[in-house]
Design a protein around this nucleic acid. Structure first.
Length: 304
DNA sequence: ACCATTTGACCACC
DNA sequence: GGTGGTCAAATGGT
Protein backbone atom coordinates (compact mmCIF):
# COMPACT_ATOMS: atom_id res chain seq x y z
CA UNK A 1 0.00 0.00 0.00
CA UNK A 2 1.79 3.03 1.11
CA UNK A 3 5.15 1.48 0.83
CA UNK A 4 4.37 0.04 -2.54
CA UNK A 5 4.86 1.78 -5.75
CA UNK A 6 1.67 2.53 -7.55
CA UNK A 7 0.29 -0.37 -9.38
CA UNK A 8 0.13 -0.36 -13.13
CA UNK A 9 3.28 1.61 -13.24
CA UNK A 10 5.64 -0.40 -15.41
CA UNK A 11 8.22 2.35 -15.47
CA UNK A 12 8.95 1.83 -11.80
CA UNK A 13 10.62 -1.55 -12.14
CA UNK A 14 12.64 -0.15 -14.96
CA UNK A 15 13.65 2.72 -12.77
CA UNK A 16 14.67 0.26 -10.11
CA UNK A 17 16.78 -1.58 -12.63
CA UNK A 18 18.40 1.66 -13.67
CA UNK A 19 19.17 2.43 -10.06
CA UNK A 20 20.66 -1.00 -9.58
CA UNK A 21 22.74 -0.61 -12.69
CA UNK A 22 24.03 2.65 -11.36
CA UNK A 23 24.77 1.07 -8.00
CA UNK A 24 26.57 -1.72 -9.77
CA UNK A 25 28.71 0.74 -11.66
CA UNK A 26 29.48 2.66 -8.51
CA UNK A 27 30.47 -0.51 -6.72
CA UNK A 28 32.78 -1.30 -9.60
CA UNK A 29 34.37 2.09 -9.26
CA UNK A 30 34.75 1.55 -5.55
CA UNK A 31 36.42 -1.74 -6.19
CA UNK A 32 38.82 -0.06 -8.56
CA UNK A 33 39.61 2.54 -5.96
CA UNK A 34 40.19 -0.05 -3.28
CA UNK A 35 42.43 -2.16 -5.45
CA UNK A 36 44.56 0.85 -6.33
CA UNK A 37 45.10 1.70 -2.73
CA UNK A 38 48.35 0.72 -1.00
CA UNK A 39 47.94 -2.68 0.56
CA UNK A 40 46.69 -1.89 3.98
CA UNK A 41 45.70 -4.73 6.19
CA UNK A 42 42.02 -4.11 5.68
CA UNK A 43 42.11 -3.93 1.94
CA UNK A 44 41.53 -7.58 1.24
CA UNK A 45 38.30 -7.86 3.24
CA UNK A 46 37.17 -4.61 1.72
CA UNK A 47 37.75 -5.99 -1.74
CA UNK A 48 35.90 -9.09 -0.80
CA UNK A 49 33.08 -6.98 0.49
CA UNK A 50 32.90 -5.05 -2.73
CA UNK A 51 32.84 -8.29 -4.62
CA UNK A 52 29.88 -9.38 -2.57
CA UNK A 53 28.15 -6.12 -3.24
CA UNK A 54 28.79 -6.52 -6.92
CA UNK A 55 27.39 -10.01 -6.83
CA UNK A 56 24.32 -8.77 -5.06
CA UNK A 57 23.77 -6.14 -7.68
CA UNK A 58 24.31 -8.66 -10.43
CA UNK A 59 21.85 -11.06 -8.89
CA UNK A 60 19.28 -8.37 -8.30
CA UNK A 61 19.58 -7.17 -11.84
CA UNK A 62 19.21 -10.59 -13.32
CA UNK A 63 16.20 -11.23 -11.14
CA UNK A 64 14.60 -7.96 -12.04
CA UNK A 65 15.29 -8.46 -15.69
CA UNK A 66 13.84 -11.92 -15.74
CA UNK A 67 10.83 -10.75 -13.79
CA UNK A 68 10.28 -7.88 -16.14
CA UNK A 69 10.43 -10.21 -19.08
CA UNK A 70 7.86 -12.51 -17.61
CA UNK A 71 5.27 -9.81 -17.21
CA UNK A 72 2.74 -12.04 -18.82
CA UNK A 73 3.09 -14.43 -15.97
CA UNK A 74 0.11 -13.10 -14.18
CA UNK A 75 -0.86 -14.38 -10.81
CA UNK A 76 -4.45 -14.61 -9.87
CA UNK A 77 -3.73 -13.44 -6.39
CA UNK A 78 -5.40 -10.18 -5.70
CA UNK A 79 -4.91 -7.84 -2.80
CA UNK A 80 -8.48 -8.34 -1.84
CA UNK A 81 -7.71 -11.62 -0.30
CA UNK A 82 -11.10 -13.18 -0.46
CA UNK A 83 -10.96 -12.98 -4.20
CA UNK A 84 -8.84 -16.07 -4.07
CA UNK A 85 -11.93 -18.01 -3.29
CA UNK A 86 -14.16 -17.69 -6.29
CA UNK A 87 -17.21 -18.97 -4.56
CA UNK A 88 -16.66 -17.11 -1.36
CA UNK A 89 -18.83 -14.21 -2.36
CA UNK A 90 -21.55 -16.28 -3.79
CA UNK A 91 -24.77 -16.50 -1.87
CA UNK A 92 -25.00 -19.64 0.12
CA UNK A 93 -28.37 -20.56 -1.22
CA UNK A 94 -27.39 -20.32 -4.84
CA UNK A 95 -25.52 -22.92 -6.76
CA UNK A 96 -23.04 -20.44 -8.01
CA UNK A 97 -20.29 -21.09 -10.41
CA UNK A 98 -19.23 -24.36 -11.94
CA UNK A 99 -15.89 -24.20 -10.22
CA UNK A 100 -17.60 -24.73 -6.92
CA UNK A 101 -19.62 -27.60 -5.84
CA UNK A 102 -23.22 -27.26 -6.70
CA UNK A 103 -24.34 -28.37 -3.28
CA UNK A 104 -23.69 -25.09 -1.67
CA UNK A 105 -23.93 -25.51 2.01
CA UNK A 106 -21.57 -23.50 4.09
CA UNK A 107 -19.54 -26.57 4.76
CA UNK A 108 -19.17 -27.33 1.09
CA UNK A 109 -17.50 -24.05 0.44
CA UNK A 110 -14.67 -25.08 2.67
CA UNK A 111 -11.51 -25.44 0.75
CA UNK A 112 -12.98 -23.78 -2.28
CA UNK A 113 -10.12 -21.52 -3.18
CA UNK A 114 -7.46 -20.88 -5.70
CA UNK A 115 -4.17 -22.04 -4.36
CA UNK A 116 -1.71 -19.25 -4.15
CA UNK A 117 1.04 -19.17 -6.66
CA UNK A 118 4.23 -19.32 -4.75
CA UNK A 119 6.07 -16.11 -5.26
CA UNK A 120 8.94 -15.16 -3.06
CA UNK A 121 9.94 -17.70 -0.49
CA UNK A 122 12.52 -17.18 2.17
CA UNK A 123 13.63 -20.12 4.23
CA UNK A 124 15.34 -19.62 7.52
CA UNK A 125 16.45 -22.18 10.03
CA UNK A 126 16.67 -21.04 13.59
CA UNK A 127 17.43 -22.77 16.86
CA UNK A 128 14.43 -21.16 18.45
CA UNK A 129 11.15 -19.80 17.33
CA UNK A 130 11.50 -16.20 16.60
CA UNK A 131 9.22 -13.44 15.63
CA UNK A 132 9.97 -11.24 12.70
CA UNK A 133 8.09 -8.25 13.96
CA UNK A 134 5.01 -8.88 11.93
CA UNK A 135 1.67 -9.92 13.21
CA UNK A 136 0.82 -13.43 12.09
CA UNK A 137 -2.33 -15.40 12.41
CA UNK A 138 -2.28 -19.13 12.38
CA UNK A 139 -4.72 -20.66 9.98
CA UNK A 140 -3.67 -24.25 9.78
CA UNK A 141 -1.50 -27.06 10.90
CA UNK A 142 -0.72 -30.25 9.10
CA UNK A 143 1.39 -33.30 9.63
CA UNK A 144 3.90 -33.54 6.83
CA UNK A 145 4.98 -36.76 5.27
CA UNK A 146 8.36 -37.98 6.50
CA UNK A 147 8.44 -35.18 9.00
CA UNK A 148 8.29 -35.75 12.69
CA UNK A 149 6.67 -32.48 13.48
CA UNK A 150 3.65 -30.86 11.92
CA UNK A 151 3.87 -27.78 9.79
CA UNK A 152 2.16 -24.66 11.00
CA UNK A 153 0.64 -22.19 8.59
CA UNK A 154 0.46 -18.50 9.27
CA UNK A 155 -0.81 -15.60 7.29
CA UNK A 156 -0.42 -11.93 7.94
CA UNK A 157 -2.98 -10.61 10.37
CA UNK A 158 -3.63 -7.80 7.91
CA UNK A 159 -4.45 -10.09 5.04
CA UNK A 160 -8.03 -8.97 4.98
CA UNK A 161 -7.91 -5.43 6.23
CA UNK A 162 -4.91 -4.45 4.18
CA UNK A 163 -4.69 -7.17 1.62
CA UNK A 164 -1.29 -8.21 2.79
CA UNK A 165 -0.26 -11.42 1.02
CA UNK A 166 2.55 -12.41 3.32
CA UNK A 167 2.43 -15.85 4.83
CA UNK A 168 4.80 -18.15 6.54
CA UNK A 169 5.17 -21.79 7.42
CA UNK A 170 6.89 -22.94 10.54
CA UNK A 171 8.07 -26.45 11.07
CA UNK A 172 10.24 -27.99 13.67
CA UNK A 173 12.88 -29.94 11.85
CA UNK A 174 15.10 -31.15 14.60
CA UNK A 175 14.71 -32.32 18.15
CA UNK A 176 18.08 -31.84 19.72
CA UNK A 177 19.15 -29.17 19.45
CA UNK A 178 15.76 -27.82 18.54
CA UNK A 179 15.72 -26.35 15.10
CA UNK A 180 12.86 -24.63 13.39
CA UNK A 181 12.45 -23.94 9.74
CA UNK A 182 10.45 -20.89 8.87
CA UNK A 183 9.44 -20.33 5.29
CA UNK A 184 8.25 -16.88 4.43
CA UNK A 185 6.04 -16.62 1.39
CA UNK A 186 5.45 -13.36 -0.30
CA UNK A 187 6.12 -10.08 1.34
CA UNK A 188 4.29 -7.71 3.55
CA UNK A 189 2.37 -4.94 1.95
CA UNK A 190 0.73 -3.99 5.18
CA UNK A 191 1.83 -1.16 7.33
CA UNK A 192 2.26 -2.53 10.78
CA UNK A 193 5.19 -0.42 11.83
CA UNK A 194 4.57 3.24 11.32
CA UNK A 195 7.61 4.22 13.27
CA UNK A 196 9.80 1.64 11.67
CA UNK A 197 8.58 2.54 8.25
CA UNK A 198 9.38 6.13 8.91
CA UNK A 199 12.78 5.12 10.07
CA UNK A 200 13.33 3.20 6.91
CA UNK A 201 12.09 5.95 4.74
CA UNK A 202 14.05 8.56 6.57
CA UNK A 203 17.07 6.51 7.40
CA UNK A 204 19.31 8.50 5.15
CA UNK A 205 20.75 11.27 7.30
CA UNK A 206 21.43 13.39 4.30
CA UNK A 207 17.93 13.09 3.09
CA UNK A 208 19.11 11.40 -0.03
CA UNK A 209 17.91 8.03 -1.15
CA UNK A 210 14.68 7.23 0.57
CA UNK A 211 15.63 3.68 1.40
CA UNK A 212 18.78 1.82 2.19
CA UNK A 213 19.60 -1.65 1.08
CA UNK A 214 21.67 -3.59 3.54
CA UNK A 215 23.71 -6.10 1.62
CA UNK A 216 25.98 -7.21 4.37
CA UNK A 217 24.40 -7.85 7.68
CA UNK A 218 27.53 -9.32 9.13
CA UNK A 219 29.29 -6.04 9.11
CA UNK A 220 26.37 -4.07 10.38
CA UNK A 221 26.85 -2.65 13.79
CA UNK A 222 23.47 -3.50 15.12
CA UNK A 223 23.96 -1.74 18.38
CA UNK A 224 24.56 1.54 16.72
CA UNK A 225 21.96 1.24 14.07
CA UNK A 226 19.25 3.74 14.90
CA UNK A 227 16.64 1.65 13.22
CA UNK A 228 17.69 -1.56 14.85
CA UNK A 229 18.11 -0.22 18.32
CA UNK A 230 14.68 1.29 18.30
CA UNK A 231 13.37 -1.92 16.90
CA UNK A 232 14.72 -3.85 19.78
CA UNK A 233 13.06 -1.50 22.19
CA UNK A 234 9.79 -2.76 20.86
CA UNK A 235 10.78 -6.25 21.61
CA UNK A 236 11.95 -6.00 25.15
CA UNK A 237 8.73 -6.46 26.96
CA UNK A 238 7.72 -9.47 24.89
CA UNK A 239 10.80 -11.53 24.51
CA UNK A 240 9.54 -14.28 26.74
CA UNK A 241 6.76 -14.97 24.31
CA UNK A 242 8.95 -16.62 21.75
CA UNK A 243 9.90 -19.56 23.88
CA UNK A 244 8.21 -22.48 22.24
CA UNK A 245 6.37 -25.17 23.99
CA UNK A 246 7.20 -28.68 23.09
CA UNK A 247 4.22 -29.30 20.92
CA UNK A 248 5.01 -26.35 18.75
CA UNK A 249 2.10 -24.30 19.93
CA UNK A 250 4.29 -21.36 20.35
CA UNK A 251 2.83 -18.25 21.77
CA UNK A 252 1.58 -16.21 18.96
CA UNK A 253 1.77 -12.56 19.65
CA UNK A 254 -1.37 -10.61 19.26
CA UNK A 255 -1.72 -8.10 16.53
CA UNK A 256 -0.42 -5.44 18.81
CA UNK A 257 2.67 -7.33 19.84
CA UNK A 258 5.76 -7.20 17.76
CA UNK A 259 8.69 -9.34 18.58
CA UNK A 260 12.10 -9.09 17.16
CA UNK A 261 14.76 -11.49 18.09
CA UNK A 262 18.30 -10.20 17.89
CA UNK A 263 19.28 -12.23 14.90
CA UNK A 264 16.27 -10.99 13.04
CA UNK A 265 17.41 -7.46 13.24
CA UNK A 266 19.59 -7.87 10.24
CA UNK A 267 16.98 -9.73 8.34
CA UNK A 268 14.03 -7.52 8.99
CA UNK A 269 15.26 -4.30 7.47
CA UNK A 270 16.30 -6.27 4.48
CA UNK A 271 12.83 -7.63 4.13
CA UNK A 272 11.32 -4.25 4.61
CA UNK A 273 13.45 -2.85 1.90
CA UNK A 274 12.93 -5.89 -0.17
CA UNK A 275 9.23 -5.36 0.16
CA UNK A 276 9.61 -1.87 -1.17
CA UNK A 277 11.78 -3.07 -3.95
CA UNK A 278 9.82 -6.12 -4.82
CA UNK A 279 6.53 -4.35 -4.83
CA UNK A 280 7.71 -2.67 -7.95
CA UNK A 281 7.44 -5.96 -9.74
CA UNK A 282 3.96 -6.48 -8.60
CA UNK A 283 2.10 -4.17 -10.83
CA UNK A 284 0.39 -6.98 -12.60
CA UNK A 285 1.20 -10.32 -11.27
CA UNK A 286 1.72 -10.02 -7.54
CA UNK A 287 4.80 -12.10 -7.88
CA UNK A 288 7.99 -10.74 -6.65
CA UNK A 289 11.69 -10.90 -6.80
CA UNK A 290 13.21 -14.26 -6.17
CA UNK A 291 16.42 -16.08 -6.51
CA UNK A 292 18.59 -14.15 -4.14
CA UNK A 293 20.69 -16.43 -2.08
CA UNK A 294 22.08 -15.33 1.22
CA UNK A 295 24.79 -17.68 2.22
CA UNK A 296 25.40 -16.09 5.57
CA UNK A 297 22.82 -16.22 8.26
CA UNK A 298 21.41 -19.27 6.52
CA UNK A 299 18.86 -17.16 4.85
CA UNK A 300 17.69 -18.60 1.63
CA UNK A 301 15.62 -17.17 -1.11
CA UNK A 302 14.33 -19.62 -3.59
CA UNK A 303 12.70 -18.93 -6.84
CA UNK A 304 9.58 -20.15 -8.50
C1' DA B 1 -18.24 -9.35 21.97
C1' DC B 2 -14.20 -9.78 19.77
C1' DC B 3 -10.19 -12.07 18.36
C1' DA B 4 -6.98 -15.99 17.94
C1' DT B 5 -6.32 -20.88 17.77
C1' DT B 6 -7.67 -25.61 16.85
C1' DT B 7 -9.06 -28.97 13.85
C1' DG B 8 -11.48 -31.56 10.40
C1' DA B 9 -12.71 -31.03 5.71
C1' DC B 10 -12.06 -29.69 1.08
C1' DC B 11 -9.44 -28.90 -3.06
C1' DA B 12 -5.28 -28.01 -6.19
C1' DC B 13 -1.33 -29.96 -7.69
C1' DC B 14 1.79 -33.62 -8.75
C1' DG C 1 -4.67 -41.17 -5.29
C1' DG C 2 -1.52 -38.91 -2.09
C1' DT C 3 0.13 -34.83 -0.21
C1' DG C 4 0.17 -30.22 1.05
C1' DG C 5 -2.26 -25.67 1.42
C1' DT C 6 -6.33 -23.36 2.78
C1' DC C 7 -10.89 -22.70 4.64
C1' DA C 8 -14.16 -22.07 8.23
C1' DA C 9 -16.90 -23.90 12.24
C1' DA C 10 -16.02 -24.75 16.86
C1' DT C 11 -13.74 -23.50 20.77
C1' DG C 12 -11.15 -20.86 24.07
C1' DG C 13 -9.17 -16.62 25.98
C1' DT C 14 -9.48 -11.79 27.14
Amino acid sequence: MECSWPENSPSKPRKAIEELVQGHQLAKQLRGLLSSWPGEDGSAPADDLVLKILNSFTNSLSILNSAAESDSDVSQIQPNARASSPCRDAPKSESSGESCRSISTVKDRRGCYKRRRTSLTVTKDTPALIDDGHAWRKYGQKPILNAIYPRHYYRCTHKFDQGCQAAKQVQRIQEDPPMYRTTYIGHHTCRTFPKVSELILNSSPTGGSPFVLSFDNSSTNKQNHPFLSSYQLVKQEHKEDIIPSDDMTYNQSSSSDYLVSPDRTAFEPFCSNMAVLSSSMESDNGDVISGVDFADDDLLFSSF
